[in-house]
Design a protein around this nucleic acid. Structure first.
Lengths: 135, 135
DNA sequence: CCATCATTTACGCTCGTTGTTATATATGTC
DNA sequence: GACATATATAACAACGAGCGTAAATGATGG
């Protein structure tokens, strides 16, 4: 059934939007459906299935209130993601000098080219565009 | 082609293992292939494509050294994940009291049931298994 | 009890990702 | 130049995620 890793769950933009909503507080399923439909234009059952994934993976929990279901965010999987990051957190202190400040102020275009010679993203259509630098 | 979100990239266990390797330092493509094959038993081209995904998404960069390619970890996307978490980080301080300590020591079974009545994962096959609590 | 609203499930479809096999591109060696 | 090593790409098959439509379940109100 639904044995998804936390990152698989977070891979879907609809689910990220739902989590974003829930970060502001509890939401009824109807509110979530409305918000997601406004952004992605998918059907209500599709949203419901995303809610189910979020429930089964522990990111959210629902509570029946009258004829509505109220969803709330649950911290556990997010904490696990944070723990996973821990291993790399020490790492980026090394080579993030001036670069970090630039990123921290909102420059989130996947960081393709900085000033360093090492090129991360390849695939220029014309050439074969290797990322071969730094001797 | 491959316009994947950072979380899509991290969703694959092979790619997570590669990142784990690179966190310890630079690795040649051959070393990565050997390690991944030992763990997952997939072919060399399959590993190479994962490396390509990691390159294109900015998680790794390669450098030609002789006839080998040396891969290194790049911090930018990991920093972005960290920034994404920032929005939720303030949140789990609220309801993570004693629960956090328990999680922090390695209890990572998706956090289905704690002591609270709110049930996260539903779908018990027999009943209809609602998560109905808290009046 | 029946109408109505809200949510979930079942099914069929499409599309992207992942894998394998075969081939291409470098680079180093003789 | 011929050949071996190292790595990347191409072509193709297959599995699974995600969607929509349609039907079912559950709750509230008359």
């Amino acid at each position: 059934m639904g044995c998804m890793h936390a990152f698989d769950v977070l891979g879907d933009p609809v689910r990220r939007q739902i989590l974003d909503l829930l970060a502001d507080g509890e939401r009824t399923a109807g509110e979530i459906v409305a918000a997601v439909q406004g952004e992605f234009g998918i059907s209500q059952p599709a949203v419901s299935r995303h809610l189910r994934v979020l429930r089964e993976s522990g990111f959210a929990a629902s509570v029946v209130h009258g004829q509505q279901r109220v969803y709330e965010l649950r911290p556990t999987p997010l904490v696990e993601v944070d723990q996973w990051l821990e291993r790399y957190r020490g790492f980026w202190g090394q080579r993030l000098d001036a670069l970090e400040t630039e990123i921290r102020r909102g420059r989130r275009d996947a960081g393709a080219r900085e000033k360093s010679g090492v090129n991360a993203s390849a695939v220029k259509p014309s050439e074969h565009a290797d990322n071969t630098n730094e001797a």
